[in-house]
Amino acid sequence: MEIGIIGSGNIGSILAGYLTKLGHRITIANSRGPQSLKEVAEKTGATPVTVEKASGAKDLVIIAIPNKAIVKLPINTLSASKAIVIDAGNYYPSRDGKIVDIECGSTDSEWVAKIIDHPVIKAFNNIVAPSLASKAMPAGSSNRIAISVAGNETEQKKVVMKLIDEIGFDAIDGGLLSESWRQQPGEPAYCQDLDKDTLEVALQNTDFKNRAVNLALADEQARPYL
């Protein structure tokens, strides 16, 4: 596949390495420009490009940037895209500022989909970067870490779940995009290195009434690192 990755931080760079090794054609971009990505390119094999270019990837676009930067993306390119778009980010108000739609009940990925005017699939957000980088295992391995995939487009979710399996993790269907809060900061499924069965339970062991409180606690805990 032709895959564009927007964001060269830990998650974006790690995924670039995996996907290049799988034989996909990977471009990667950040807000600082292609010239800042020489080291990432050498390490991962991805081709540094502009954000505009990565946004126009034919088959898949992965957005791995803070929510506060979403509004700076090339919206016209993304809205017109026929590619699957993955949102790998997480909303942290202390970093991103308070976003009214999210504070009023939308999931962060519903908000991203609204801003870029394109459906999104939520994935790669409920695993910490060190685990993503070092804990991939062949299919069938015991205690293989699972990643939840949420979205409204069933066929697109299947493509993303297959890709996750090829990278070295189990993938489970996390439901509709409106349910993706279950895999976000503060919830039991967030960044716990759970296997498939345990992650399924964790996604259901949630209460929407506690969502705002849980997010606030997670935001406070993460504040020193953001």
Rank of each mutant, 00 (worst) to 15 (best):
G89H: 03
K43F: 09
K196N: 08
N205T: 14
T20W: 00
G174R: 11
V51Q: 15
I28T: 02
K38M: 13
E200M: 15
R211W: 05
A212N: 06
M137A: 13
I86H: 02
I127D: 00
D170L: 09
V159E: 14
L215F: 03
E2C: 05
E103R: 10
G168H: 01
K72A: 14
G56I: 09
A80Y: 02
I172L: 15
N126R: 00
V128R: 02
T154M: 11
I127K: 00
Q156W: 13
T198Y: 06
G89E: 06
V160F: 01
P185N: 10
L199Y: 12
K58C: 06
N67T: 14
V100A: 15
V51D: 12
K38C: 07
S8T: 05
G151I: 08
P130H: 00
N214K: 13
G105W: 02
E153C: 05
M161C: 10
Y225W: 14
R32H: 14
L194P: 08
P34R: 12
N214A: 04
R144I: 02
V51F: 10
D108S: 15
I145A: 00
I14P: 01
A83I: 11
K43L: 15
D173G: 10
S8N: 03
A216K: 12
V128H: 02
A202H: 02
G97A: 10
S31K: 14
Q156S: 14
D207L: 08
A189W: 04
L73W: 07
V120N: 07
I63F: 09
G97C: 12
S178E: 14
E187I: 01
S55R: 11
S81P: 07
P119M: 05
G174N: 13
I99E: 11
A139L: 12
N76V: 12
G168P: 03
E155Y: 03
H24E: 05
R144T: 02
A139E: 13
V149M: 05
A216G: 06
D170F: 03
L15M: 04
E42W: 09
N214Y: 04
A146N: 03
L37Y: 11
P119L: 02
D197I: 14
G174D: 11
V112Q: 08
M161V: 06
N76W: 06
S13D: 01
A88R: 03
L19Y: 00
T50W: 09
I5N: 05
G186M: 05
F169D: 00
A202G: 05
S13G: 08
R211M: 03
K135L: 04
A123V: 00
P130D: 01
G105K: 03
V112H: 07
V100S: 14
E179Y: 06
V100K: 15
I6D: 02
S36P: 08
G17A: 03
A57R: 11
L60F: 09
A64Y: 01
Y190E: 04
D193R: 00
R211K: 10
L203M: 15
K43W: 11
D219T: 10
